[in-house]
Structure formats: structure tokens, C-alpha cells
Design a protein around this nucleic acid. Structure first.
Lengths: 206, 206
DNA sequence: TCAATCAAGATTGTTAACAATCTTGATTCC
DNA sequence: GGAATCAAGATTGTTAACAATCTTGATTGA
């Protein structure tokens, strides 16, 4: 039997959440072109709902930075970050994540070990299957775990930064050694070696 | 005749934007208690609309981090950042703003000089009147200006960071010398002295 | 008295219809 | 031919009603 781990604290039955997750997944995995307009009616049909929940989800992704809104014109996929912007964002993400990871290591519980192992395995499998959407999602899910455990306040900020970054580079990056990079991080975490973990994290979050 | 400068690019007639700005202003200025629930119907009556646009605005403020959402229970004002979280956020905000400010100085136009002068004067007046809501808003508006001019991508991120920070401390900070701090920054900017501007900025963004 | 149950009210979640705005392409006029 | 105008369709913005869920407080039973 397979247990699906839900990293979201919220009730997943709420339609807007489901739409939001599905759309974010599409965006991360590059199924949608930059600047492509997103039509509410089409999504409503796809998810079998009315436009209300769709609008909620679009507004949320807009605020996360994955979409951009224009009055009376709806939303479209955001244009990619410049290299300059990306390096600023990467620096912010790294400092946030370093703080969370070191705090996480200090407070680590037994369940966390299982969870980390599971998330790493999922990422490894995705890398072996070489499926970009899967790799991107598993990558984010792993990082998100220690951020969320450290601080729910910081989790939402982290999400915004990460979605933007991965939207830009998931279309270019080779993910052959992504699994190896994360294996090093997780091993250091399980050894409770903060310094080593932060070092490998710094290498991973470019 | 007074020209009201609209730093938002979007059409302000769209109801949800107006609601969002008004509510954010309330949140920043501490009119609402932490953890206080926000009711959709009340806001709809206050703004003379239906609940639809209100929901849009609440969802947006939730994603900005000023409110927190729980399924089937609506939103409430977020609990304050811990000192630890605040210092992480402050660091992120500072590095973002330093990047934007130095870029802004390099590309500064003639209109920017007028705008900066105007925003600084507005802040000074608010400080003299000693009205907390006004000071907080003018403070944010000034910082927001150079961030927005440097990068619209980074502007939305900056907003999320700043709203959280100011919600925590605007209730405690004395703003007697806020005007002086910003005068120093703006003067350095107008002299195109990047190093000095960044130094004073670093002192201001604790 | 205390806990469990239930019902009424309050509140959020969703929907479909209508209004306002934008886009597109044909038509007209020069 | 080319620019301006206009109308039809498409799309977003808003609304009010209804459904689902939660909260509150009274009632019941031990």
C-alpha cells in the first residue's frame, strides 16, 4: 500500500487548492510557454468546476509570482527572470534555506528521518526515470520539507522564491546528478552535521 | 493642484485592488489585532460590493503573508514573526533592496528625482504629524519606488517581505528619526553615491 | 454537575447568470 | 490601399443565491 504524503496542511478537498497545485506543477515542469495567457473558462472545464475557484487559484499563483495579472485581461505566464534577478533570488533563497535547515537539524524528530529518506528516494527514482516534471517536483518537495518544519511563516516566502527560480531553469538544467547532490545533503542532515549540510546546500542552490 | 501618484501600474478601479490596498493599510497600521478573524460579509458591506472581490483581496493578502487561511474557516491576521524569523526576513529584504537601489541609481531619470523628493517630503510630513499609519505607508512607498523601478519581478517579492516586517514592528518602533534616516539615503541617491546610499540603507532596514 | 447530542445560526465554498471590457475582423470612408 | 469605425464574439468583473461546513448554545441523559 502506498501512502501519499500531503505536505500541505490544508484540506486538499478544497477545489482551489487542487487547481493551484496542478497548475503550479504544469508551470514548474514547463508545460506552458512564457507569456502564454491563461483562460479561466478552459481551466474551469478541465477541473470540472465553475470559474470562481479557478480565479482563486490564478490569483494565488499570481501572488506567488508564477503568473502575472493585468486588469480586464486576466493572467499570463510570467516572463523569465533575468540572470541578474535570478542571482539575487538565489541568494535570498539560500540564506532562508540555510537558516531553516540548521534549525531543522537541531529539532529533528524520528519521523523526520523517515520522511527525508522517503523524499530522497522519490527524487532518486524521478531522476532515474529522467522525467523533468517529476524531478522538479520531488526536488522542491524535499527542500520544502525542512523549510516547512522550521517555520510556516518562512515556507510561503520560500515557495515564491523557488517557483520563480525553477520556472526559469528547469527548462535548461541537466538533472543527472541532482540525486547525488541531494543524497550528500540528506546524509549530512542525518548525521546532524550542520556545517557539512549547509555547505552541500550552498552547492545545490545555485 | 495635487497630483496623486499611482505606483500601481494596474487600473485602480478594479474593486479587488482597492480593497486589497485599504486592507493592507489597516494591517500595516495595526488597526487589526494579530489572529483576529476577517469576515468576508463585513468587508463586502464596508466596500459596498459582493463577497467575490473581497475573497480575491483576502486571498492575495494571504499569499503576501499578512493573513493566514484555513479551509472552511476563512482568514485571520497572521501571528507575529519571531525575532529569529524577522532577522532572516530583514536580511533577505536588505540584500534585495541593495541590489535594486544600486541598479536604480545607475539608471536614474529626471522624473525619478522629482518623485523621490515628493515621496521623501510626504514621509517627512507624516513623521511630523506623528501618525503611525501614515508614516508606515510613506516609508514603504519610498522604498517601493526604487525597488519597482529596478525590477517588477522583485517588487512583488519585496512587498511580501516588507509587509510582514512592518506588521511586526510598526506597533513598537518610534519613528521620530525615520525622516532623518531617509533623508540621508535619498541625498546619497541624488548624489549618485552608491556606496553611501547602501550604507545608510543598511542602517535603516534593521 | 458534566458530557454528549442536536439544532439553529453564522460563515465559507461554489455556481450560474449578467455586466463591463477587450479583441478581432469586416466595413466604410478618404 | 490604408486608416478609422463599428459590431460581434470572447473574456474578465461582479453579483446574488444556494450548498456545505463550522460554531454556538441549549437540551438531554446519566
Amino acid at each position: 500500500m502506498v501512502w501519499v504524503i500531503n505536505t500541505q496542511a490544508h484540506n486538499p478537498k478544497v477545489t482551489r487548492n487542487a487547481i493551484c497545485e496542478a497548475l503550479r506543477s504544469d508551470l514548474i515542469s514547463g508545460k506552458l510557454d512564457f507569456d502564454q495567457p491563461i483562460r479561466e473558462q478552459k481551466l474551469a472545464e478541465r477541473f470540472g468546476t465553475s470559474r470562481g475557484p479557478v480565479r482563486d487559484a490564478l490569483l494565488r499563483l499570481t501572488q506567488e509570482g508564477a503568473l502575472v495579472y493585468e486588469a480586464n485581461k486576466g493572467v499570463r505566464v510570467i516572463s523569465p527572470l533575468t540572470d541578474e534577478e535570478r542571482s539575487v533570488v538565489a541568494g535570498m533563497r539560500l540564506s532562508l534555506e540555510k537558516h531553516c535547515l540548521s534549525k531543522f537539524i537541531k529539532n529533528m524528530k524520528k519521523e523526520d528521518v523517515h520522511e527525508l529518506t522517503f523524499l530522497l528516494e522519490r527524487l532518486t527514482t524521478a531522476c532515474e526515470r529522467a522525467s523533468l516534471p517529476g524531478v522538479a517536483e520531488c526536488d522542491l518537495a524535499l527542500h520544502r520539507y525542512w523549510v516547512a518544519q522550521a517555520s510556516s511563516h518562512l515556507e510561503t516566502m520560500w515557495l515564491g522564491l523557488s517557483v520563480r527560480m525553477i520556472m526559469k531553469y528547469s527548462r535548461l538544467t541537466k538533472y543527472e546528478d541532482i540525486a547525488a547532490e541531494h543524497k550528500r545533503i540528506v546524509e549530512a542532515v542525518l548525521e546532524k552535521d550542520v556545517e557539512k549540510a549547509l555547505f552541500y546546500l550552498g552547492e545545490n542552490v545555485i
